[in-house]
């Protein structure tokens, strides 16, 4: 592993992300307009991890975020699109990275998020009523970043997440849905944000998660599925949150990543890799598979 050209590799990624904004007529760019806000979040986070945040056009990005806030308080993926919790969280995360939360009307964001909580504690993604534990995560993460968790019924939000817990210790989209590594990340992450991790059966869930590691060293997102870098992120971060990361073989994970993506240097790279490969791997909060 020591011989791999890590510097060159990172440079390529840096240049790729830095150049991305200038390819506005590219097929890929146009077709991903509907998730632009999240794309920017992934891009600047990856750049930040590589200590290259300065290469991004901060002023332009902040202006873009401001432009995307709607009267209802919610934020959309880009201009003309409808607001949604997914992009509201991405926007708040971007502004936190730039320490520029005063760009948007945070009170309105809080109202928007609050208005999406249902009587059973769940969250819908927007006014059209799709319920999903991903949106519970978005809501809790967003309000935590704004220091406004008290605006919602946290207890009920937790109760709903716990209603999605399954026989394998994992969590699904809604009560009754099968466990899935991405969904587990959202639920475990949400519980961690509100200090309720003890509700997770860490040993049972940790076992299911560490069994996602396949003989190749890579990880899958559900039993009997193929490995994928994107799932590796959900599994590894969930294991980290519940304190069981040592239950998988880190060396094998890294060497797989290196094989597939010319990779090096420590576990933090996992995060970078996933973020960097977000486009090619289709890592989107609204499409795991």
């Amino acid at each position: 592993m020591a011989n791999l050209p890590s510097v060159l590799f990172l440079e390529k990624h840096i240049n790729y992300i830095a150049a991305y904004e200038n390819k506005k007529d590219d097929y890929e760019y146009v077709m991903t307009e509907y998730l632009r806000m999240s794309g920017i979040y992934w891009g600047i986070t990856a750049m930040d991890l590589m200590h290259q945040l300065d290469m991004m056009d901060k002023v332009q990005i902040i202006a873009f975020v401001k432009q995307c806030q709607h009267k209802c308080g919610g934020i959309s993926s880009s201009e003309n699109h409808d607001p949604h919790l997914l992009y509201t969280l991405s926007a708040v995360q971007i502004l936190c990275t730039y320490d520029a939360l005063d760009t948007i009307d945070a009170d309105l964001v809080v109202d928007y998020v609050k208005g999406l909580q249902q009587p059973d504690g769940s969250f819908v993604g927007d006014k059209w009523g799709e319920v999903d534990t991903r949106f519970s995560f978005c809501a809790l993460a967003c309000l935590a970043l704004l220091h406004r968790l008290e605006a919602i019924d946290v207890n009920k939000a937790v109760q709903h997440i716990l209603a999605c817990r399954n026989f394998d210790g994992g969590f699904g989209t809604r009560p009754g849905s099968e466990s899935h590594a991405g969904q587990i990340y959202c639920c475990v992450g949400a519980l961690a944000i509100v200090g309720r991790l003890h509700e997770v059966d860490a040993d049972l869930l940790g076992w299911w998660l560490c069994e996602r590691q396949l003989p190749s060293g890579g990880l899958n997102g559900r039993p009997e599925k193929l490995p994928d870098v994107c799932y590796s992120w959900w599994v590894l971060s969930s294991l980290t949150i519940i304190g069981r990361l040592h239950w998988i073989d880190k060396v094998q994970v890294l060497s797989t990543f290196l094989q597939t993506s010319h990779w090096s240097k420590g576990m933090m790279c996992t995060y970078k890799l996933v973020l960097l490969s977000s486009r090619s791997q289709g890592m989107q909060m609204n499409r795991y598979e």
């Binding site: 077709m31 509907y34 998730l35 959309s76 003309n80 699109h81 409808d82 949604h84 927007d126 059209w128 989107q284 609204n286 499409r287």
Partner: peptide, 13 residues
């Protein structure tokens, strides 16, 4: 061809 563009579904609804 692009079923992930949620704004379009919203308009249909």
């Amino acid at each position: 061809g692009n079923p992930d563009v949620s704004t379009l579904w919203n308009y249909r609804r």
